[in-house]
């Protein structure tokens, strides 16, 4: 793999390994994420993901901000993996049942 180098890592005792993401992500993607409110990293406007402009006639799915056109999300599905890129999304606000 040839990914760009990641930003400076936090102090070694300051992080958990990636397995700790499993629970939160399972919860996130068990809901209908199109109702989640996403904030664009480009223009900082927000709205439900259902408002995004989805370009699907491509090697992957490309979802763009309806206000500024920047790519907010990319999803590539290979036979064995999904690649999700959210670097154009500043945050996703997801309504969950009250605990």
């Amino acid at each position: 793999m040839n990914a760009p180098s990641s930003p400076a890592s936090p102090a070694p005792d300051d992080y958990q390994d990636g397995n700790a993401l499993a629970g939160p992500l399972a919860e996130v993607f068990a809901v209908d994420v199109t109702a989640a409110v996403g904030t664009c990293a480009g223009c900082r406007r927000n709205g439900p993901l259902a408002r995004l402009r989805l370009y699907g006639h491509a090697p992957g799915l490309v979802a763009r901000c309806p206000d500024c056109g920047q790519v907010m999300m990319r999803l590539v599905r290979s036979p064995t993996e999904a690649w999700l890129d959210l670097h154009g999304t500043l945050s996703l606000r997801i309504a969950l049942p009250e605990v």
């Binding site: 793999m1 040839n2 760009p4 992957g60 290979s78 993996e81 690649w83």
Partner: peptide, 24 residues
């Protein structure tokens, strides 16, 4: 080397069809 749009999202860095280099 600086991977491009699809090359940073799971597609092969080189993409030779005869070697079926679709994905990373």
């Amino acid at each position: 080397d600086e991977p491009g749009f699809w090359e940073t999202a799971g597609y092969n860095n080189y993409g030779d069809p005869w070697r079926e280099q679709r994905y990373q």
